[in-house]
């Protein structure tokens, strides 16, 4: 298969997954429930009100997380760089935990307290990582990853502190949210995430040439005419709100941004003009598939999808660490 030839296949697979996933579940549903809705019919209700919104949310979140990972990997020249390694999602988690602890149940600018808290946390973590590297006057991979590690450690310990001081009920809510999942009813959540993902993907699509050059090194990119500092800031500011809002709605579903871009790179190559659409299509389908498996494999128990992706992602991470792909770059 040629590198170009994979794209139509990815499109087909992604569409097929979107179409089939709502029909699969604790009870299989006929296709007619999706294409010929009958008002008041139970099957129609289940498919249209519960399963379809959930599948859409998972697809949008998967696409957003995967493309975020792709952008950070290009920027840091490191296949292990993801929004999660850089502290963006732990910042969001901390924000959500604080919101739960303080009992911010009220709506704020159309967002629930938890969503607003998580978005704020993501932006603060991004700001902290950006500020730390700025203080060092050095936007190298090493300083950004180190800043991410520091922010991660700080947020994790603060989440533990909050859980320690919280009552049993709040602790359980925080823990449950941290596992990640898409158990929502209606399209509200998907529609809340969609504009941020559209904006993020749009900005990154405009920067495919820059992302290609950044993977060859910042000095070379600068010599080819890339305004490196500005492009990195734009990528950071495009990706962070996208990750923040996804994490706030779905919880920190990990490793999607690590696995999907890597698999797509194997299929279509490293050129971001092909890699970006491939990653969006694959990331969406991947998370929908993961969620479908997680919710049906152990029926009637539904496994949170975050646990499932982490079980896949952990070994994948170690595999990349032990046998890094050629040209993927390392921490340097």
């Amino acid at each position: 298969m040629t590198r170009r030839g994979w794209l139509p296949w990815l499109l087909a697979v992604s569409a097929a997954v979107l179409l089939c996933a709502p029909l699969v579940g604790g009870r299989a549903m006929p296709l007619s429930a999706l294409v010929h809705p009958v008002p008041g019919d139970a099957a129609t209700m289940i498919v249209r009100e519960i399963r379809l919104p959930r599948v859409c949310l998972a697809w949008i979140a998967g696409a957003g997380l995967a493309v975020s990972g792709m952008a950070f990997q290009a920027m840091f020249r490191n296949v292990l760089a993801t929004p999660f390694t850089l502290g963006v999602s732990s910042g969001a988690s901390l924000g959500a935990a604080v919101a739960v602890r303080l009992g911010l149940g009220t709506m704020l600018l159309g967002f629930t307290g938890v969503t607003a808290g998580a978005m704020l946390g993501a932006l603060l973590a991004t700001g902290a990582v950006y500020g730390l590297t700025r203080l060092r006057r050095d936007f190298s991979t090493v300083s950004m990853l180190l800043a991410g590690v520091a922010v991660n450690a700080l947020c994790s310990s603060l989440i533990l502190l909050i859980q320690y001081t919280a009552d049993f009920n709040d602790t359980f809510r925080i823990l449950r949210w941290l596992m990640g999942g898409f158990q929502m009813v209606g399209f509200d959540a998907a529609l809340r995430v969609l504009p941020f993902v559209l904006a993020g993907v749009g900005i990154l699509a405009a920067l495919v040439g820059e992302l290609n050059l950044l993977t060859t090194g910042e000095e070379l990119a600068a010599s080819r005419g890339v305004a490196v500092g500005r492009v990195k800031a734009v990528v950071f500011l495009a990706v962070s709100p996208m990750v923040g809002v996804i994490v706030s709605v779905c919880g920190p579903v990990g490793f999607v941004g690590l696995m999907c871009p890597h698999i797509c790179r194997l299929l279509v190559g490293a050129d971001h003009r092909r890699l970006l659409p491939a990653t969006v299509l694959f990331g969406g389908a991947f998370l929908v598939a993961c969620d479908t498996v997680a919710s049906t494999a152990f029926a009637p128990t539904e496994l949170p999808v975050g646990i499932f992706t982490a079980c896949l992602g952990g070994p994948f991470f170690l595999w990349l660490l032990l046998w890094p792909p050629v040209g993927g770059g390392d921490a340097g």
Partner: peptide, 16 residues
């Protein structure tokens, strides 16, 4: 040792 082909890499010289 980038995972780009020679032609892809040379094409990036057209970025400006």
């Amino acid at each position: 040792r980038f995972p780009y082909t020679v032609r892809e890499f040379v094409r990036m010289g057209r970025y400006p």
